[in-house]
């Protein structure tokens, strides 16, 4: 996208939420969160399904009124200036809301028209975006015939039709195969390099780790931690993790026996995790104690470990 266009000043808050609340009847989906997204950054909401990420996203997208608290998007109040905000947003919802009975090109053109763009503009833009999404050769085919990954790419292309200042991506790669995910990430990197502010929700820690400069970890409608991926890992986890797997029924009591080899031990239904600065050494010590796991793995700490530490649960179950 026209990356050479004057990028807005870095540091101005694109989104600012204070004590933001969303209620559906008696259910409180978002329970008072404070968030600030700065211009030009890639910001992530990480959390399991039902953490309140999508509700937050839809409030930012100005398609869902807030129940309480304060929210500014692009400096404006969504309750007052919804259409003006939406005019400058790109939104990739969790479900592809494409018009499956039309061609790819028609989908982009019609969508662009809703942003008040001229026919000539949307025609030019559609061609450009199909190139960007690597869908040019299918431009005049029906959306119905596309694979899941292609539809997702088209939805992202569609969200870019108005050259948005802020792009919202709600679970952009859920349900896609690894290849399709990497291709999407590549496109998102390019956008970020072009100066577009990104907000991404995900329950995949690798996605957030790869794409986001800064993130908040959400659980049960609340923010439980905030920072850059490396900061969060440094703050809430150790450098390395030793994963030990045992045959069914043999895991009992192991956690206590290996506890001394790490700073912390977590027991999951299918494995025991030992948090330590040096995984290899811990493994040697475990073997020395005559503990015989079926398999073992030494790896770097991830956001998954951060989440486990903060909530006592795993992200994807």
């Amino acid at each position: 996208m026209n990356g050479e266009a004057a990028a807005p000043m870095v540091g101005a808050p694109m989104v600012e939420a204070k004590a933001l609340v969303k209620r559906f009847g008696d259910v409180e989906a978002v329970r008072g969160i404070d968030v600030q997204v700065r211009t030009g950054e890639a910001f992530g909401f990480l959390g399991p399904n039902g953490a309140g990420k999508s509700s937050t996203m839809r409030m930012i997208a100005s398609t869902s009124p807030r129940s309480d608290g304060d929210l500014r998007v692009l400096g404006m109040d969504p309750d007052v200036d919804g259409p003006r905000i939406r005019a400058r947003l790109g939104s990739v919802p969790q479900q592809d809301t494409l018009d499956t009975e039309l061609t790819l090109r028609q989908n982009l053109q019609i969508y662009g028209r809703y942003f008040g763009m001229s026919r000539a503009d949307v025609r030019r833009k559609a061609t450009e975006l199909m190139e960007f999404a690597q869908l040019s050769e299918r431009a005049d085919g029906l959306v119905d015939a596309l694979s899941g990954g292609m539809k997702r790419r088209l939805t992202i292309a569609r969200s870019l039709v108005n050259d948005p200042d802020l792009l919202l991506l709600d679970e952009p790669t859920t349900g896609l195969d690894p290849q399709a995910r990497h291709m999407l990430w590549d496109r998102l990197f390019r956008l970020k390099a072009g100066g577009v502010t990104l907000i991404i929700t995900s329950h995949y820690m690798d996605e957030v780790e790869q794409l986001c400069d800064r993130l908040v970890v959400m659980d049960d409608g609340r923010i439980v931690a905030e920072g850059s991926p490396s900061e969060l890992i440094a703050r809430y986890s150790t450098r390395e993790v030793l994963e030990l797997r045992f045959a069914p029924g043999e895991q009992g009591g192991i956690a206590a026996r290996v506890a001394e080899f790490g700073e912390r031990v977590e027991e999951l239904p299918d494995r025991v995790l030992v948090y330590t600065g040096d995984g290899e050494r811990a493994l040697e010590q475990v073997h020395g104690r005559d503990v015989r796991p079926v398999s073992s793995l030494v790896r770097r700490s991830t956001l998954e470990d951060v989440f486990l530490r903060l909530t006592g649960r795993t992200l994807v179950d």
Binding site: M14, L74, G75, D77, V80, F115, D121, N162, D163, D165
Partner: peptide, 11 residues
């Protein structure tokens, strides 16, 4: 309202 600078083509 203080609208933050825009390069978006949408209106």
């Amino acid at each position: 309202r203080v609208e933050i600078g825009s390069r978006s083509a949408g209106r």
